[in-house]
Design a protein around this nucleic acid. Sequence first.
DNA 1: ATGCATGAGAA
DNA 2: TCTCATGCATA
Length: 175
Amino acid sequence: PHHVAAMTMQDMETDPRELEAFAERFKQRRIKLGVTQSDVGKALANLKLPGVGALSQSTICRFESLTLSHNNMIALKPVLMAWLEEAEAARRDLDISSGLLPPGEKKRKRTSIAAPEKRSLEAYFAVQPRPSGEKIAAIAEKLDLKKNVVRVWFCNQRQKQKRMKFAAQGGPGLP
DNA sequence: ATGCATGAGAA
DNA sequence: TCTCATGCATA
């Protein structure tokens, strides 16, 4: 019975396709409720689930677009699912409970790596995704960037590769 | 929507 | 020092 795919409950919940389907449903229903990603993030705190606080617009956006790690998606799914149910129930109950929505209402600087430098970094990454500290220093000097900027760039690049959309099938462009 | 960054915890 | 979840700032 090699074709009988006996999926357990756990498999169902962690299946990338199930997550993708949920993310899509979530987004559409969220929009129907007329709620922004930012609203959802803040509303999560009002849900009072143990160990669950507010989240940023970024995180909600990334959940909807599957640009989070598989584990991260699995962890957030039940929380967002809970919020969605509450939000839709509240609407049915005559908008009485708007407690699900938050009350209305030193700048960090961001380095901007120029296109040529970025292309070089990508080339280095293709050859060696995990350069040693010394390699990083060398690369930083060649590109005239701070060593820390280069280090963080490699970290973020590796993390990016692990996001659902890339990890599921071995990456875009690969068989 | 996404680039660069932070901080806690693992190794 | 890295990974991981997460977010501010910005395009």
